[in-house]
Design a protein around this nucleic acid. Structure first.
Lengths: 211, 211
DNA sequence: CCATGAAATGAGAGTAGCTCTCAAAATATA
DNA sequence: TATATTTTGAGAGCTACTCTCATTTCATGG
């Protein structure tokens, strides 16, 4: 977020963002890579920020300069802008469930293609480490706020109305559960199918309810 | 939890639970009261566990013996068993939305009658303090697991199925948003009406969707 | 009423996440 | 090359939280 606004200072878009920016990206990535490796070796709780800093060859202060909390090193992703753009690009007459299916599929395909192991590790930590799960839920709530902006545009409803807020958060709650389910069952299923099934539930209610 | 199992050691149920149990309850209450008072005076972050211990006239160790985290001192409530009992007691043919309306109403009436200020303070902290909100969401997820057990009994669905899990969590997500909304709007509305409206959204979808 | 066993408490040391400050180093700019 | 700005590292400090062990408080049986 910060880097995006700081990117264009005064000059036009340069292909090379300058040494400073490049180093920052490298440092950020080094910290995340070190964190993932250490967690795989020792588990989350046993991994201290000091160890992360050491392996990433930076000081502990620097780690906290890049990530506000230890959990954020794990869960931070940058798909929100992509998802929102995709969301607004969907045709006007498409049902919200179909819209979300497309959007989620796009985000998941990107994420799984780019770093499949990390995607799985993250969801697993979401199950195993309460602090990580909590941070995920926070991030989910933030995405929910974005979602309801977009849904407000589509539907013409007030984005601050209780109804839209409840709706958006219930969708996000359901999607969060998909992530938990996927990880708890050992990532056996195709998560995109799980998402589709979840959105079917949210759209049509539970199946096999007495008619 | 611990106290409940330890309650009946060998003798029959006594009206007076013994001096030890009574003292424990008093200590627990003293800690919570001290916490609420200090938070009102100074805010959440500025209130340290040491201060809480001092005002409650116990040692800091004792505070952590009674509550696993500082957030738990604030958010712990004991309505889950009540709600579950109420849930199972509803007539078989009632819709799940109506069931939940009744259950939530019962819980809210109890909570508001017993300690209205605390109920409001809690929801307010859920908006203002990320750590408290996170803990609330955890507790919400736990309630969601109970909810899906009960819903499984009613519907005959597998409690571990993705569908039921998604459904239960989406309901809890929606209810969580009600709490946020209520606090953000200064507790102006009747929260029981808000709950009803939220459950209507969850049952019938958003209003004014194009037909 | 007293002795014995069990539970609750307090004191204190220790860990680790996180914040803040300030000086040194790296980079951009002129 | 000189100067201004940004980034970093070192270190001190706070606090939530854990663990251990001695002391106190309550329960129980004689």
């Amino acid at each position: 977020m910060t880097s995006m606004t700081a990117a264009r200072t005064t000059s036009a878009d340069r292909p090379q963002p300058g040494l400073r920016e490049r180093k920052k990206i490298k440092t950020r990535q080094a910290i995340r890579t070190a964190t993932y490796a250490l967690i795989e070796e020792q588990g989350y709780d046993a991994t201290t920020v000091e160890q992360i800093a050491e392996r990433a060859e930076v000081s502990p202060s620097t780690v906290f300069r890049y990530f506000p909390t230890k959990e954020d090193i794990v869960i931070t992703d940058e798909w929100d802008p992509v998802m929102m753009a995709e969301l607004r690009a969907r045709p006007e007459d498409e049902s919200w469930a179909d819209v979300l299916k497309h959007v989620m599929r796009t985000a998941l395909d990107l994420s799984l293609a780019e770093e499949p192991e990390v995607t799985r590790l993250r969801t697993r930590l979401g199950v195993e480490v309460p602090a990580v799960r909590a941070r995920m839920m926070e991030s989910m709530a933030a995405t929910g706020r974005l979602l309801r902006e977009a849904l407000a545009e589509r539907s013409g409803l007030d984005p601050d109305s209780l109804e839209l807020r409840v709706f958006a958060m219930s969708v996000m709650g359901g999607l969060m559960e998909v992530s938990q389910y996927w990880a708890e069952t050992g990532h056996r299923d195709d998560i995109r199918e799980l998402v589709d099934r979840a959105l079917d539930v949210l759209e049509h209610g539970l199946p096999t309810g007495k008619p």
